[in-house]
Computed example of a mutant assay.
Amino acid sequence: MPHPIRVLAALSILFLAACATTRPPVRQPGDAVTLGLQEERERSLADTDHWTLEGRLSVASDKDSGSGSLSWRQDGDRYEFVVRGPVTGRTFRLTGGPAGAELEGLDGGTRRGPDAETLMAQTVGWQIPLAELKRWVLGLRADTGPADIAFGADRLPSRLVQDGWTVDYRQWDTVRQPAMPSRVFAERPPYKVRLSIESWSFGR
């Protein structure tokens, strides 16, 4: 059985920028203005499903923790997450799409599952909503159910609560338009994921 935190680091990509704006400790409930701006933002990014982010990932549970560099490439329905450990240099690679998911870099060889969510559950017992996460990391609400959203003084999302997860947006890159998250903390006890995004690139 592989060490759990190594798999968490490889699979928790679901969830720390040169031009980033420090987030104020403000969480204002959505009103007509901020919710309208968010709806406009979500319309402008609705078809954004070809992108790559580079950064750092830290994951923790009540039993263990770990961190590493992260490359996440989203290509429509297909994805590739690559995590490299800072000390060992060991690389974990999760790839998949509609036909299934594969995780490479574990002791004992490649693991496979029908999708990333099932593969994670089978490997470490986590239930990770990948479809939602690929929207949350863009600062968008997922279309899977109700979401409670709060905003900072800059009228950008500050906290998003959906599907049992609390997603805190600690920094945004406001030079890029539309602004993009650059520091994202996600938590559903006992699991915590911290993502520091150093760069975004869009397109095929």
Results as ranks from 00 to 15, higher is better:
10 A>C: 07
53 L>I: 14
106 L>C: 10
76 G>E: 07
33 V>W: 02
16 L>P: 09
153 A>D: 13
138 L>Q: 15
73 R>E: 01
186 A>C: 07
26 V>W: 00
176 R>F: 15
39 E>P: 02
21 T>P: 01
96 G>L: 11
141 R>T: 15
41 R>Q: 09
177 Q>G: 11
14 L>M: 09
25 P>K: 06
83 V>K: 02
68 G>K: 05
165 W>K: 05
95 T>K: 06
155 R>D: 02
111 R>L: 15
137 V>Y: 03
17 A>W: 03
162 Q>D: 06
138 L>A: 15
57 L>R: 11
163 D>R: 12
17 A>C: 12
70 L>Y: 01
95 T>S: 11
86 P>F: 05
74 Q>T: 14
181 P>S: 08
175 V>M: 07
136 W>L: 09
88 T>L: 10
194 R>N: 05
66 G>D: 04
83 V>Q: 04
82 V>K: 03
46 A>G: 09
73 R>C: 09
70 L>W: 01
76 G>W: 02
80 E>V: 12
168 D>N: 07
200 W>S: 08
81 F>W: 03
71 S>K: 05
149 I>L: 11
133 L>I: 10
120 M>R: 01
33 V>I: 07
138 L>T: 13
26 V>R: 02
201 S>T: 15
14 L>N: 00
164 G>K: 10
61 S>M: 06
145 G>K: 09
136 W>M: 12
156 L>N: 05
28 Q>P: 04
172 W>E: 03
